[in-house]
Design a binder for these strands. Structure first.
Lengths: 160, 160
DNA sequence: CCTTCCATTGACCTTCTTTGACTATTATAT
DNA sequence: ATATAATAGTCAAAGAAGGTCAATGGAAGG
């Protein structure tokens, strides 16, 4: 466990607990984690994308930096509209999952609700060779049922 | 003689006596038992299926893992199994909604989670001239997004 | 025996991570 | 202005897991 990428992600998010943005040196960070500098870009691309609710700004050359900004949505009346536009009438699982994480980080949904949502949009729930509506719904719904039980298990573990 | 699969099954169940979940490396386990890695999948599929009360989660790539979670089945030991049978591979909206209500009455899900589930299985979410998986997912997901926001509004009204 | 069902294996596939070579940009010293 | 040093970005390839499936093996029942 303790993936390098995961560690870097958490490291950055820890830096951002107070402030909504953080500025760092790519090479320094890479050196701190003993990895290739491009590893940092990988983490940014996979965990700090716009869909995750972050914006990356950077600058090269002497005194260069990478700045990570958490997007403001406080009081943004069109957040839902924005998300709906982003989704459009076709969206892949990766994007959907990123948006769910985003909602979760903003505490707009609970951990359990996020899990429920993920289960509804997962490959597993939707990749079917059929077209009948009921059949499809069954697939989605079974997935969600499983999720409910998983959530209960989680809850019980935490209650102890 | 004790089948390999049985040994692996018991080995895993021993690991789970205390905790309701374990995380393991497929390849390590296979090596420990001197068998093909896919053997592990066979054991998981035949002895740790949802019908058996378990859920499997996994991740590929570096730092990959297989997590086995034992579900808590309150009271009736096969409630989930019953529900899954009831749903089968085809279910209409009415039935799905009834099951969701039932889960809610049993306090297995919150009001918000129930709403989320309804939104995922609603006519509106699924009755589309779709064929591409992504298109379908988008429809489901947009519905869930709307629901999340509805929930938030509800919450806010109650907070006042 | 023969069939059938469960178990086992191995070849091939998919996903996620990490690295390194090469490229692009910016500041600073000359 | 120009050269150089200091940064960061991109992309393809290698590495590190786990997944699938069809073929084979083996044991129990008929």
């Amino acid at each position: 466990m303790a993936q390098l990428s995961d560690s870097i992600e958490h490291f950055i998010k820890d830096l951002m607990t107070d402030d909504a943005h953080v500025e760092l040196r790519r090479n320094e960070l890479a050196q701190h984690f003993g990895c290739a500098p491009s590893q940092i870009n990988y983490v940014l691309a996979t965990r700090f994308s716009v869909d995750h609710g972050y914006i990356i700004e950077s600058r090269r050359g002497g005194g260069g930096y990478v700045r990570i900004v958490r997007m403001q949505t406080r009081g943004e009346p069109n957040f839902l509209e924005m998300l709906l536009n982003r989704v459009g009438n076709s969206v892949d699982e990766e994007t959907a999952v990123a948006i769910i994480s985003n909602l979760l980080e903003r505490k707009m949904i609970t951990v359990k609700e996020a899990a429920l949502m993920r289960s509804a949009v997962s490959r597993n729930a939707l990749a079917l060779p059929i077209s009948a509506k009921d059949v499809l719904r069954a697939a989605v719904f079974r997935n969600m049922l499983v999720q409910v039980f998983k959530n209960l298990e989680e809850e019980n573990r935490n209650d102890v």
